[in-house]
């Protein structure tokens, strides 16, 4: 089939795969990409539960505004769409309850 905008994914060269963990599960991504991008690629979309109704939530605006992609990294609440993936980081989901 003629494609005017062909699939170029094979032409994209990325940094080596590195591992990190999300809630203890090992996930791979490429060093330097956003944490949210690595999580989305891995199919790990459900990042947190909404505090009011425990509705599952994940990355939405991807530009640092909506605060839906919050995760916890080194004790700090961070926007995963604005965090650069580093090898070996341990990321946990944000829990609002007493078991925090």
């Amino acid at each position: 089939m003629i494609r005017l905008a062909p699939d170029q994914s094979a032409q994209i060269r990325r940094t080596e795969k590195v591992e990190f963990t999300f809630d203890g599960t090992a996930i791979w991504g490429h060093a330097g990409e956003s944490l949210a991008a690595a999580l989305i690629r891995s199919g790990r979309l459900h990042l947190r539960d909404a505090p009011e109704d425990t509705d599952p939530r994940g990355a939405f605006c991807l530009m640092g505004l909506c605060q839906e992609c919050l995760v916890v990294l080194e004790g700090q609440t961070v926007e995963s769409c604005r965090i650069e993936l580093q090898p070996g980081i341990d990321v946990t989901s944000l829990r609002y309850g007493a078991d925090g």
Binding site: P51, T77, R95, Y96, G97, A98, D99, G100
Partner: peptide, 8 residues
Amino acid sequence: SVTERLKP
């Protein structure tokens, strides 16, 4: 001022 939600 107000913070985001925090654990107790």
